[in-house]
Amino acid sequence: MTKAEELEIIKKVIDGDKAAFEELVLANQNNVYNLARKMTNNDEDALDISQEAFIKAYTQLESFRGESRFSVWLYRLTYNLCIDFLRKTTRQATVSLTYTDDDDDIVNYEIPDLRELPEDALLTEESRQIITKSIDELNDSHREILIMREITQMSYEEIGITLNINEGTVKSRLARARKNLVGILISKGTFPDSYRQKAGEEVEDCV
């Protein structure tokens, strides 16, 4: 759905055609639900939050100025609701399990040895589940940006607007998130042991 189409529907809804809102729901419900689902890790909570996001978007539709896509505005609403929800449900326990990695320290950069492994061997259902669950062990900013990119397939621009960061930050944060996720997967044995845990000097040597 293009931005113009979104605006046309919004105008209809504001003019009294409430049923037209269904088109906006249909176009965005999967992304909204998946975003909430991965952020909360609970299907029921995700359903509640998704519903609340759409209702909130509907009630505030008149204040929507069209400066961004409706879908992006909706993602931001959803994201804020998720953050509120998570804050209220105290995530301290999961925080303590967070995989910690010094982002700025290249010494910790681990490279999985995937040279000899056929891709099929890695992508078993079990592996997929471990990979997606391992996202939860990232810190919040890395987790949410990976969810937005990988699961809801949001563009860099959309992520930037939703998280209120510029695209350069989206790019670098995604890179760090992926790097840390690889580290987690190596530590779990999902990815084969790194054939070497690189120090910065060694990485420099590779070219």
Binding site: N30, L123, S127, I131, I151, T152, V182
Partner: peptide
């Protein structure tokens, strides 16, 4: 691999 695995979890 991560991309493939996560995108399929939607």
């Amino acid at each position: 691999i991560i991309s493939e695995a996560t995108s399929k979890s939607a």
